[in-house]
Design a protein around this nucleic acid. Structure first.
Length: 576
RNA sequence: CGGAGUGUAGCUCAGCCCGGUAGAGCACUGCGUUCGGGACGCAGGGGUCGCAUGUUCGAAUCAUGUCACUCCGACCA
């Protein structure tokens, strides 16, 4: 490609509302243009990158035996009503009516459609297993789209679905996808980690997320540096403390804490560490008939509640946070000063986190406005609470696999694999006849990769003060030829054109920057857009039969003989 | 959904407090000089200041409404 035939615009300054580095650089490099919140046009330059990522994903999926198809972006509401997700999915699902007032959605995912496809045509165990995938635009009406293509509303996703006659066969395919995903992210040059994950709203059991490790990631990952354990923080189990609860040694004391409602304020005011305080969180679970369960969840002052864990407790699924009025009704005290001492256990469930259950002589709210208690001990001052794992793990917690201690890092979720089991197949009556001629519900797996998000994630991992750094496999161009005075010097023009034809003929993905720009602009642009290899053609090198090579991350350029450039580049491209 | 903030040229922003009919830099067009790290000079094109209503002789500026966008929050009592 010649720059003069191509179309790209670069900016010196990023739009003011761009937050993360990948978003700023993608806008500056002209990869994308914002059309609306979370909705972008992929310009020709950015599209080249997106397509390269897409093709690597496609190649590996095909290699793993999956078959590509393309499903509609617009889906009929009936399928969603049939699976029950028309009600369950919530406002992220973009719904609309056609001219006949029929309901449709713009697909945020395709379990319903694929299951419908398979149930129509697959009738026998002989046709199983089958794995179908597509690379297609999805739409999820995110509350708060941000970070450019990393959390867009419209995005490109590879979603694959496998169908099996047995759970064992699903597990085999799941493992194969685990390996395939690892290959894909490795080929993409990403630093990633597979982590055990919660199955979230999509349901099912058995799930791994693939995360690109990056500071700007939106997910916290707990991992063990001494083993291969890694899990989403929301899922990682917080083990009970190894040290037993100390015996009561301090007297129960009521202290005045006027106006101090936040844990940190109370701890500071009382001169105790945050970890010596127990905070109480009031939640309510309401049944369809209107019966309320009111529960007081006890957490150590410096720990965070894990809502997923709470929602899995018997009698608290689903739950919500209590209103101020409910707190007053059940505890007779306004929020800010509530605690486990003196509550009516006939009306209130008290559930302590495992860590809290092992605490003694702690401080907590007194259930009396402007007062807290110190020296509180279970068994002596209030009944023994229920005990459960309620909190997010923190760095330094013991690893659940017993092999050391957890560390926390941030990750960008770029892939997710699930064993859906029979959830959708059951709802949509997707069945087959087994060898005995007996009707069975199919086992299903689903496997997603955020193709457009990968571009953002790759740039989060690869950039410097000059711009984007991408591996040749996904860079917009693998090689840039930058002539010094293309429009002034016949010798330079001839040499640049000849080199360009030679590299093209050799199958290299090369950009000849034949714009009538000053050298500084061309260098800056080629670096900004992330071209990994650069050849400079200038009169002063040509005089000695030499060209100049510089890798995107090299500190200095190196001179090479003009006739050995092709071999030199091929060597570098193979090595990468 | 709650709170805060911002809407002025393609991009980054000034002007608004204190009303008098719109500016800078980058980008763009032309000419000239320049030409190995985002050049310089001169001359240009481009905005009814998000939109609506109101106040006023007069509104980018003040008021009200509305729309859009951004940020923070939406557990941590």
């Amino acid at each position: 490609m010649r720059s003069s035939q191509f179309f790209f615009t670069t900016l010196k300054e990023a739009p003011a509302d761009a937050e993360v580095i990948s978003q700023k650089l993608m806008l500056r490099a002209g990869f994308i243009k914002r059309a609306a919140a979370g909705i972008y046009t992929w310009m020709p330059l950015g599209l080249r990158v997106l397509r390269k990522v897409e093709n690597i994903v496609r190649e590996e999926m095909n290699r793993a035996g999956a078959l590509e198809l393309l499903m509609p972006a617009v889906q009929p509401a009936e399928l969603w009503q049939e699976s029950g997700r028309w009600e369950k999915y919530g406002p992220e699902l973009l719904r609309f009516k056609d001219r006949h007032q029929r309901d449709f959605v713009i697909g945020p995912t395709h379990e319903e459609v694929i299951t419908d496809v398979v149930r129509r045509d697959v009738k026998s165990y002989r046709q199983l297993p089958i794995h179908l995938y597509q690379i297609q635009t999805k739409f999820r009406d995110e509350i708060r789209p941000r970070f450019g293509v990393m959390r867009g509303r419209e995005f490109l996703m590879k979603d694959g679905y496998s169908f099996h006659a047995s759970f064992a066969d699903l597990q085999r395919e799941y493992q194969r996808m685990y390996d395939t995903y690892s290959r894909i992210f490795t080929r993409l040059g990403l630093q990633f980690r597979a982590v055990a994950a919660d199955t979230g709203s999509i349901g099912g059991t058995g799930s791994h997320e693939f995360h690109v490790i990056a500071e700007t990631g939106e997910d916290d990952i707990a991992y063990c540096p001494d083993s291969d354990y890694a899990a989403n923080v929301e899922l990682a189990e917080a083990l009970p403390p190894a040290t037993p609860r100390p015996a009561p040694s301090a007297p129960l004391t009521r202290v005045s804490t006027p106006g101090k409602t936040a844990c940190a304020d109370v701890a500071e005011y009382l001169g105790i560490p945050l970890a010596g305080l127990v905070k109480s969180i009031a939640v309510v679970s309401e049944t369809a008939s209107g019966d309320k369960t009111f529960a007081l969840l006890l957490l150590r002052g410096d720990h965070e509640l894990n809502e997923i864990k709470v929602s899995k407790l018997a009698g608290l699924s689903p739950f919500r946070f209590a209103t101020e009025a409910e707190v007053e009704e059940f505890l007779g005290c306004k929020p800010g000063y509530i605690g486990p001492v003196g509550v009516d256990t006939g009306k209130v469930r008290v559930i302590a986190d495992r860590t809290v259950a092992a605490m003694g002589n702690f401080a907590c709210g007194a259930n009396l406005a402007d007062f807290h208690l110190t020296g509180v001990n279970f068994g002596r001052d209030c009944p023994e609470p229920e005990v459960a794992d309620l909190r997010n793990v923190v760095a330094g917690d013991p690893s659940p696999d017993g092999k050391g201690y957890l560390a926390i890092c941030r990750g960008i979720e770029v892939g997710h694999i699930f064993q859906l089991r029979t959830q959708y197949a059951q709802a949509l009556d997707c069945t087959f006849l087994d060898e005995q001629g007996k009707r069975q519900v199919m086992e299903m797996g689903c496997y997603g990769i955020g193709v457009s998000r990968i571009v953002g994630a790759a740039i989060e991992q690869g950039h410097d003060d000059k711009g984007i750094i991408l591996p040749a496999s996904i860079a917009p161009f693998a090689v840039a030829i930058v002539p010094m005075g293309y429009h002034k010097s016949e010798a330079v023009k001839a040499a640049a054109d000849q080199l360009y034809r030679q590299l093209l003929a050799a199958g290299l993905d090369v950009l000849l920057d034949d714009r009538d720009e000053r050298p500084g602009s061309m260098f800056a642009d080629m670096e900004l857009i992330g071209v990994p290899h650069r050849i400079v053609v200038g009169e002063r090198g040509l005089a000695h039969g030499q060209l100049e090579y510089k890798g995107r991350t090299d500190a200095e350029a190196t001179l090479i003989a003009a006739d050995s450039v092709l071999g030199f580049l091929q060597e570098r491209l193979c090595a990468a």
